[in-house]
């Protein structure tokens, strides 16, 4: 079960396995995606269509209007979405610990787990505590950021 569903799948007799950094990035993107789209979609939807109409009547083509008008107006939502994604990514443990199996590079929670659960050398609490503190600080800062800039333009 674990062999086929979690660590890869068998296609046409070949075993396809995705692990390591690429798989970790993909897993984090999937986890963070809803939080980003929940932030940015309403912001895009609340932009008055006539702002784009106005830009186009003034000579901007659709792409230019997107870059000049719509994107600047959703920047706060984009920043909030990015901060969410960052906070989720940095704290994500479950899927990362599985996908980072046998890989040297790993995210902080996984490294932390390795320090505290090292069976051969015994728990190494010093680096683990330091990393835990850094994680806490980074997550706090990103949520402060969400709170400050996430409110968007008051229209």
């Amino acid at each position: 079960m674990l062999r086929t569903l979690v660590f890869g799948t068998t296609l046409f007799g070949y075993r396809v396995t995705v692990t390591g950094p690429v798989a970790i990035v993909a897993a984090h993107a999937v986890a963070a995606y809803p939080f980003v789209s929940r932030n940015v979609t309403p912001a895009l939807g609340s932009i008055d269509d006539r702002l784009v109409d106005a830009a186009r009547a003034l000579g901007a083509d659709r792409t230019t209007a997107l870059l000049d008008v719509e994107l600047p107006l959703v920047v706060p939502a984009l920043i909030a979405g990015a901060a969410f994604a960052f906070a989720i990514s940095i704290g994500e443990f479950d899927s990362t610990v599985l996908l980072a199996e046998g890989v040297d590079s790993a995210t902080m929670p996984v490294a932390l787990e390795r320090y505290t659960g090292n069976r051969s050398l015994g728990p190494n609490l010093g680096p683990a505590t330091a990393m835990g503190t850094v994680l806490l600080a980074v997550t706090t800062v990103s949520f402060v950021l969400i709170d400050r800039v996430g409110s968007g333009w008051n229209q």
């Binding site: 008055d48 186009r56 107006l73």
Partner: peptide
Amino acid sequence: APPEARNVGMVFQNYALFPH
């Protein structure tokens, strides 16, 4: 022609000024 190629000036009821 698309709107940007028509050389029209348009004014809307809600002003539609770019807030940023």
